[in-house]
Write a protein that binds this DNA or RNA. Structure first.
Lengths: 216, 216
DNA sequence: TAAAAAACCTAACACTAGTTAGAAAATAGA
DNA sequence: TCTATTTTCTAACTAGTGTTAGGTTTTTTA
């Protein structure tokens, strides 16, 4: 075999880089700190990656691609008859799964994206748009099937969902609530909202009034 | 007057720092770059702030405090009888208003928070918790009044709302949709969800079935 | 307008950054 | 084992970092 033992070191360097970028940002992460974390010397990194920019590029791409492919695969495993709710819950679950699997990469992606040289950012933006398009399709398809309110603002809904999903990486910790739980409740909020459909329970006489005011 | 002309320069430095931190992160922002943006020399910054850490601390505090006080003021202006929906929509509107008014500070806060020295981060975390508590109170109060589903996951709903709100700063640009529009649609998603309450419109016969499956 | 204070600049300090060339060590193939 | 290749290290270079001391300019005060 030509290259084999090298691959191990390469991955150690990449993992270390993701972790450091996540904690200290792009400029705040030094090659020496990455080297320390990967248990080698700074100069040796250049045998695997020819610059710091190439390292951050790799980390960013892995971070998004993992989420994209996780969500795409999960969606394709669904039957044709799957509803918008099914697809949303499935996508949320796949998104969360990808995050906890390679949390360092996705967190690094989110935290470092705004600080990276523009050329790198531009390339990565295309991947981000791809991911946004996946969600847009879920929503518009379900809307076309009449599953959503006619006047629902799908673009805004998508931005809310993606924003909330991007934020999960900040508070979701394995060991607490299960991914299935979070995905279900998350979907429930988006699809059904949190409003009590039967109006205020204290005063049954108000129900009709409540329903009307909610219709505005 | 003792100090007066100094305040102008001080604010210029602060604004420049917020903008630079926002674009290049904590370590990626140099004192010389801030000085350039503020139209003076690097050494002169130290007449106004005694270190880079003091600068970032000021930026972070301003960023969160502006949002907190904007939301608190708006909520207190509401009548006692305001519903949960009213309060949520009002808070969202106030949050967005604060963001577009001092977008550099809030964006800097979001982007730089994870990279700042731990002592600074800890102090700022308390302010963040304060903000989270404001939202938690809105939700639990309305829930206690029976406005929300009995089994609604309020903690998750709060995280969903805060995540989505934190993300608005990434895509909301003045000149597009108005703040009122966004706040209304945002609230509609959280409160009512996007599901069509009358079921699928293509097949009226399915309505009942739809409503049942949605109840699960 | 002269003296005092405030605001700013210059030049340098000690240090750390990314990166590189070449030597040294580890590994693989014969 | 000996050799060739791969992998790592050492040591250094240049450029740029936050910060400071002391001098200059501007503004305020009297």
């Amino acid at each position: 075999m030509k290259l084999a033992k090298s691959a191990k070191s390469q991955k150690r360097v990449l993992d270390a880089a993701a972790k450091m970028f996540r904690d200290y940002g792009y400029a705040g992460t030094t090659m020496r700190a990455i080297a320390d974390e990967a248990d080698l010397k700074a100069g040796s990194i250049y045998y695997h990656y020819k610059s710091k920019d190439e390292l951050i590029t790799a980390v960013l791409d892995i971070g998004i691609n993992a989420v994209i492919s996780s969500v795409e695969d999960a969606l394709q495993a669904l039957p044709e008859t799957a509803t918008g709710r099914d697809r949303i819950e499935t996508a949320v679950r796949a998104h969360l799964s990808a995050i906890i699997k390679i949390g360092d990469y996705t967190l690094a992606t989110r935290r470092v994206f705004g600080q990276v040289p523009e050329a790198i950012r531009l390339k990565n933006t295309k991947l981000r748009d791809t991911y946004g398009a996946i969600w847009q399709k879920i929503l518009t398809d379900a809307h076309a099937r009449g599953e959503f309110k006619t006047d629902a603002n799908l673009t805004l809904a998508r931005l809310f969902i993606l924003g909330a999903l991007n934020w999960t990486v900040e508070w979701y910790k394995p060991g607490g609530r299960t991914i299935d739980d979070v995905a279900r409740d998350f979907t429930a909020v988006v699809i059904d909202g949190i409003a009590n459909p039967y109006g205020v329970i204290h005063s049954a006489a108000d129900d009709n009034q409540q329903a009307q005011s909610r219709a505005n």
